[in-house]
């Protein structure tokens, strides 16, 4: 297939599947809380709706950076699709993309001039301090498989079995990373409802929702590829639905932690994950 067509197809799939999964997550959360909840396609419909609604640019916004930073969010997740499903490239590139995502959160919060955005901007720095240690999972994967290339990790798992079973604590660390990026998560301090929509306040909503859908799909895709590996499209879809439902259960049953608790919980999990994984690798 033509490379550009392949990229366009994968970006479209990531957007559509990601949107439906985020809608599914809201549905599961609603059912747990004894509410009928919105239809599963609600997130997708909202994305289209916000593309048609008027966006006002606040006087306090740092133009044109205010618009450019939303484009940046989309740029990094389109790049993630290329690194992931299209080329099955290096996990290190994915780490770089995630690190830039934290910078985007920070700068989007500061560029609108909204006080809610500014609070979220500060919290993005807090949460980066907690989430980035979770990426020690990459070192553990490298120590176990001897490679950072996604296609080689899949080959390794075909020969030696899923990494989920051999380095479960690393999988747990990555899962916490996914959890922290999900809406209504106990760790989503940058988008907590106490600060309206956090760094997204005042920004182009439809465009951000588009990028978020791709981001959710990509995080799940990376998790399934790295820790289970060798799945066909149906396997990926089932895996994504299961993880999303599991995340929805956690999010429906836990409050959003305050920033200090969120950071300390994640750092503690990172510490347990790193030390535990090293011990598992040694014995």
């Amino acid at each position: 297939m033509n490379l550009m067509a392949n990229i366009l197809l994968n970006v479209t799939i990531a957007f559509l599947v990601g949107s439906i999964l985020l809608g599914f997550q809201r549905k599961v959360m609603a059912r747990i809380q004894m509410r009928p909840g919105p239809p599963i396609i609600q997130h997708l419909l909202h994305t289209f709706k916000f593309f048609l609604k008027e966006s006002a640019f606040p006087k306090t916004a740092a133009m044109p950076f205010y618009i450019a930073i939303t484009a940046m969010l989309c740029v990094i997740w389109v790049a993630a699709v290329i690194v992931g499903p299209v080329t099955e490239g290096s996990l290190l590139l994915f780490f770089a993309i995630y690190a830039i995502h934290k910078i985007v959160e920070h700068n989007a919060g500061s560029s609108s001039g909204s006080p809610y955005g500014k609070l979220s901007c500060v919290r993005a720095v807090f949460s980066a301090a907690a989430e980035v240690p979770l990426f020690a999972v990459l070192i553990i994967i490298y120590l176990k498989t001897g490679t950072m290339i996604l296609s080689s990790i899949v080959t390794y798992q075909n020969q030696h079995g899923a990494l989920l079973l051999s380095i479960p604590l690393a999988a747990l660390m990555f899962f916490v990373l996914i959890l922290s990026k999900s809406p209504y998560s106990p760790f989503s301090i940058t988008k907590g409802k106490d600060i309206v929509s956090g760094y997204e306040t005042e920004h182009l909503r439809g465009y951000l929702m588009f990028s978020e859908s791709i981001s959710w799909y990509m995080l799940l895709w990376i998790f399934l590829t790295v820790f289970i590996g060798g799945l066909n499209p149906v396997g990926y879809l089932i895996g994504m639905v299961i993880i999303t439902a599991f995340v929805a259960f956690i999010n429906a049953l836990t409050p959003i932690l305050n920033p200090n608790h969120s950071v300390m919980t994640q750092v503690t999990l990172a510490f347990i994950g790193i030390v535990g994984s090293v011990i598992l690798l040694l014995y």
């Binding site: 048609l52 609604k53 008027e54 939303t70 989309c74 389109v78 290329i82 439809g206 588009f210």
Partner: peptide, 30 residues
């Protein structure tokens, strides 16, 4: 069908810009 690096550059830069500009064109005006 240009070389790979050009396709990657075009996709990373122009797919987000297409969607952004489409959004700015399609949004309602008060």
């Amino acid at each position: 069908n240009p070389p790979y690096w050009i396709v990657y550059a075009i996709s990373i830069v122009f797919i987000p810009l297409t969607i952004l500009s489409f959004g700015l064109l399609s949004m309602a005006k008060g």
